[in-house]
Each structure stands twice: as structure tokens, then as C-alpha cells.
Design a protein around this nucleic acid. Structure first.
Lengths: 129, 129
DNA sequence: ATAAAGCTTCCAGCTACAGGAAGGTCAATC
DNA sequence: GATTGACCTTCCTGTAGCTGGAAGCTTTAT
């Protein structure tokens, strides 16, 4: 299978697939005599795995570690657990920040009933202090 | 006042201040005979304004527009309103996404009671489908 | 024969800076 | 007068995760 087909099967663009190979997130693809990359089923699985991790907002570096860890079946599971909880914790922090942010923005959005910049209370708030 | 003092007053690093000048978010600073940048009160206000907008996660491009708009006191206020509501909407979208994410991660985090990678149910979930 | 589609590599750009090198300047100290 | 240390300057590189585009192959279809 050529790169474009792998791309359409997995929903990951050819550009991105090459990029993943560049940064060694994917192994170097086999090449034909013409220099084209050729892929197998295995590569579909890898890309799907990556895609799913990315949906969880994992950094590529972490995904790389997960991929590495998978090759040693006897390794302890703690690393995986650790990555997931870290991720979860970051999400929660982000949620908290966004919540504060929403309140601030909401307050701002409601504060201006004027028509001209010189009276704009949003800007006055932002300049304040 | 020299750049370092402006930095310590506003909490924005000298690097960042120079960067803001580069991208014309701040006007070109006055220079002494030695080439050093010198600043006034006005610059403190500008930087504080920028800092406050950044706390609201506004992109620098938007902040630039806000700064530009401020110089024309008779312009309509709608642009400012628009930016704020856009920002608010994005925050809400992000919140929704994070909420979904948290659920997914939570489900994953709870799913693995095993010890070895080869049995890890987190990885199995991630590979699934 | 030619055109279109697909492949390759490489280079630039996006955001918002931070780190560091190489070199000039200023104030204080010996 | 010389030196030290703290500042200042510009310029280059790197960060994350790609995307767009150029220049130049190959393959396939007409």
C-alpha cells in the first residue's frame, strides 16, 4: 500500500505520516525501487494507535514512549498508568483555568453598553490597575 | 527607564519586550546615543494592557487589533465586543472538548489492574477498533 | 506523446517566545 | 588606568506538530 492509501485509511495525511517517520515515531518505511514508501497492515495499527493517543492530547514524545514500551511485553505497566494519570491531571488543570477564564471574559463581555471606543468599558477594564 | 526596569515593573521579560517591538505590537522604542532602548510611563500601560489580554488567552494578533483600535476614539465599539465574544466562544468549545477528554481518560485510567505490559488493558483499549 | 496524479526531498512558516553567542557600554572598584 | 560585572545590542537556533509549496522524479491513463 502506498502512502496515500495509508493516509486515507487512517485519516492521517501523507505529510504527517512522513513527518512521523522523520521524528522516528514510525519506523522507516520499506521503499520500492522507485523510492516510494510501501506500507502494511501493521502500519495501519500503529497510526490508529497514534491517532487515538492524540485524541487524548498526548504529546508525541509520550506516544513515542508508549510505542516503545509496547515492544517489551514483560515490562511493568506502571509507565502506562503514569502517563495516563499525568494526562488526566493536566486536563483537569486546564479545565480549572478555562473556568476562571470564562468568568473573566463573561464579566467583560457584559460590561460594555457603549458605542464608541473612547467610552468602551471593556477597554477601560483591560487598561485598569 | 531601561528595558530591564520596564521588565521588572511589568513582569514581562526583556526578551519578550524586544520581541513585541519586532512584531510591531509595541512601537519602536526611543534609543539613546549608545543604542539602548529607553521607555516611559506610557510603555508600562501598554505592556500591562497586553499582559491582561494575554491572561484572557488572546492571540497577539488580536491584541494588536485592540491596540490599534484604541487610537481611534470615535471608532465603533463593535470590534472590541466581537473579539471578546469570539474569545468566549472558543473558551467554551475548549471546555466542552476537555470535558469529553476527561471522561475518556478517566475510563482508561480505571481500566487496567494488571502488572505487565502484555496484559495492559489501557494499551488494549488504545489499540482497539 | 502528453497530461494528470502521485511520489520524493527540502525549505519556509505558523505561535510566542527562550537560550545563547558575540560584542558594545556603563558604573564601580582597585 | 585597568578590570570586573552587569547591563545592553543583534542575530541565530530551537521549541510542537505539523502545513504549504517548490523542484523534480515515476506511473498511469488517454
Amino acid at each position: 500500500m502506498q502512502i496515500k492509501q495509508l493516509a486515507s485509511v487512517t485519516g492521517v495525511s501523507p505529510k504527517t505520516i512522513r513527518y512521523y517517520e522523520d521524528i522516528a515515531l514510525l519506523p522507516q518505511a520499506k521503499r520500492g525501487d522507485n523510492g516510494y514508501r510501501y506500507y502494511q497492515e501493521q502500519d495501519i495499527s500503529s497510526l490508529n494507535f497514534i491517532r487515538r493517543c492524540k485524541e487524548l492530547r498526548m504529546p508525541l514524545a509520550d506516544i513515542k514512549r508508549l510505542l516503545a514500551v509496547q515492544s517489551d511485553g514483560n515490562a511493568p505497566c506502571a509507565q502506562v498508568d503514569g502517563l495516563i494519570s499525568q494526562q488526566l491531571e493536566q486536563i483537569r488543570i486546564a479545565q480549572y483555568e478555562l473556568q476562571q477564564l470564562e468568568q473573566n471574559l463573561q464579566a467583560l463581555a457584559n460590561c460594555c453598553g457603549n458605542e464608541q471606543i473612547k467610552d468602551c468599558e471593556i477597554l477601560q477594564q483591560l487598561r485598569a490597575n
